[in-house]
Design a protein around this nucleic acid. Structure first.
Lengths: 124, 124
DNA sequence: TGGCATCTTGTACAAGTGTACGATATTATG
DNA sequence: CATAATATCGTACACTTGTACAAGATGCCA
């Protein structure tokens, strides 16, 4: 399943999906624990979001005891690609340069980081 | 009015807002014309989105003849800052480096561009 | 085996979103 | 001034999203 055909991710769903990626496999509880403390959201809500992510095709689950263990059903790279692409289109008309510039100016990005990036791009 | 207090932008609203920025001032028609051809959306829909953007506080309008002329009510910089910040949080847990990397690897970004960015950051 | 703790499932519901029709107002034009 | 063209405004409506409760299922421990 390519990401292209899947329904779009809502902001909250994206957040949850990221945590599942980070944990590789995760139960509802584990995702809850990984949430930043200031993000007050109940177990039940996380559960619903995981369910929706599965229904949309982004996650699958296996059963372990009574708990569901969720994991990615599509490659993270693909999701990132589409998400960044969409974001870029909407906010910058598709041009990545202004975003790079913004990050370079306002992000906590050092000259070293950029040096590394430069190496990355020139290496192919 | 700082952007902080304003209701969040939906994807479609963001797209329309970007066009208004691009045009500086724009009527419904002008925004429609600026839309990419493959984006099939009616005049009425654009109108609604512009109205909602105004209601949310992102746009204001003056009247010229029978047409409304919309323009930004908040600084683009601020909106970009918040949008990028939110996006970064959701998809990358707030860390800009992976996004930079992604753009460097997959975007159409030349080594020259990066060189410029480097100059940008090291200059402060 | 009985119950506590923990899970999932079903369901809910208000608000937001994407999309747009129909009615009404306004302006330019013949 | 009548009318066509063009605007806006009110409204609609199905779908999504964010958030969550309540009820039923399941596994664990005494």
């Amino acid at each position: 399943m390519t990401v292209e055909n899947l329904p779009a991710l809502s902001p909250s769903e994206t957040e949850i999906l990221r945590l599942v990626w980070q944990l590789d496999k995760a139960t509802v509880q584990e995702v809850c624990e990984k949430l930043p403390a200031e993000r007050k959201i109940t177990y039940a809500t996380v559960q619903t979001l995981l369910r929706r992510l599965e229904k949309k095709g982004y996650l699958k689950h296996t059963v372990n005891g009574k708990a569901h263990v969720f994991s990615a059903a599509v490659e993270r790279e693909h999701v990132v690609k589409r998400s960044v692409g969409d974001f870029l289109d909407r906010l910058f008309g598709g041009d990545p340069i202004p975003l790079m510039q913004y990050l370079a100016e306002h992000g906590t990005i050092s000259a070293d980081d950029i040096e590394n990036l430069k190496r990355l791009t020139s290496k192919q």
